[in-house]
Simulated assay, not measured.
Amino acid sequence: MLELAGAVLPLLDAGHTLAVATVTRINGSAPRTLGTAMALADTGAVIGSISGGCVEGAVYEACREVLQTGEAALHEFGYSDDDAFAVGLACGGRIEVVVQRIEPGAGWSGSALRAEFVAAASRQPAGLALVVGGSAFGSILVAGYVEQPRPSSPLGARDERRLQAELATRISAGRGGLAVVDCETGFVEALFVVAASAPRMIIFGAVDFSAALADASVLLGYRVTICDARPVFATADRFPSADEVVVEWPSAYLARTEVDARTVVCVLTHDDKFDIPLLEVALGLPIAYVGAMGSRRTHERRLEALREAVDAGVLERLHSPIGLDLGASTPEETAVSILAEVLAVRNAASGGLLRHTSGPIHRAAAVHADEGI
């Protein structure tokens, strides 16, 4: 639901009612992940996608019904071998979808739920809990707010606080998921939908390849920083898609800036006076990916210089020459090559052709795990 925040906020702020369908359970192969959402506005506008096309028509009809009734509904979709033309997932998996209505009231502008949408749209940490099982099915909770579509079987105040406390913990950890929470009135099954702050892509070198990589990285949800020690090249006008352009000695900037386990560092300068001290710093940080551009000869020269300061095991973390072998040559093609490797590393994937692999195509993410709390 929060993935749609930027698109649905203007509709909600204008007073429109939405029906939102959220994937709350996945069994087998499915094209999207847990928490993926699709919304239908009372204007007829459709935002987002549940499955990439194969069950959208049925989800649309389910949303239309919830828009009319206001009653939350649970639907399951899967592929039927007996009737291949039935509504279902051609990939063979099964998904469970909960559809809920969001109707902004008089206090919407100052509501806690709106604040979570605003935070998610701004790529800041946000979260909400959707009750998907039990007597309070269909309830939506955020910190300091609960919407319960069935007043006859509401959550108790202590249960609300229990779920909100669990949500706060998950927002802080950036970890969503489906969980069964032990509450005062019994076990409550809830999907915790969490939007973490955007991961960082730090690109060193104010060159054409950096501009293309910045453009592509934004599409993948990264917060992009361009850093170069040369002020004549490192300008905001040359990198309009970057969130920030920093003029500073690369190794000094990386040593002082904030990074985490999701941060990606791409060194595109291929200039030893910048690269060697920068890579020494980068390889000593607990970040997701360190890559450096350059020829094989440049790579060997780098390795020789780095061996004097960096342990051999640590050097294994360096992706150089950067990117996957796609035959890329232009800046735009090279950006695809680099990001393809970043995704493969992030997902512990081979980066090979899918037709040469076996097993599920869609890998389970951490958010898929069912948990008991």
Rank of each mutant, 00 (worst) to 15 (best):
L4K: 11
A5E: 08
L11R: 11
A19E: 06
A45F: 10
A45N: 10
A58I: 00
E61W: 10
E65F: 13
A73Y: 11
S80W: 07
S80K: 09
D81Q: 06
A84K: 01
G88E: 06
C91F: 02
W108K: 15
G110K: 10
S111T: 13
F117V: 09
A119T: 15
A119G: 11
A121W: 09
A121K: 11
L128C: 12
G133T: 08
A136M: 11
I140K: 03
I140F: 02
L141K: 10
Y145V: 08
E160M: 05
Q164C: 04
A165W: 02
T169H: 07
R170V: 14
V188M: 03
E189L: 08
A206N: 00
V207R: 01
L213H: 05
A214E: 09
A214R: 10
L219H: 04
L219P: 01
G221H: 08
T225W: 00
I226L: 06
P231M: 02
A242G: 09
A242R: 07
A242N: 08
D243H: 03
P250D: 10
A255V: 11
A261C: 06
V264W: 06
V265C: 15
D271T: 01
D271E: 05
K273M: 05
D275Y: 06
P277A: 02
P286N: 08
V290N: 14
G291I: 12
G294K: 09
S295R: 06
A305P: 08
R307C: 10
A309H: 13
L315C: 10
I322M: 00
G323L: 03
D325T: 15
E333W: 00
T334W: 02
L339V: 04
A349K: 11
A349F: 04
S350C: 09
G352P: 08
H356Y: 10
H356F: 09
T357P: 01
A365E: 09
V367T: 15
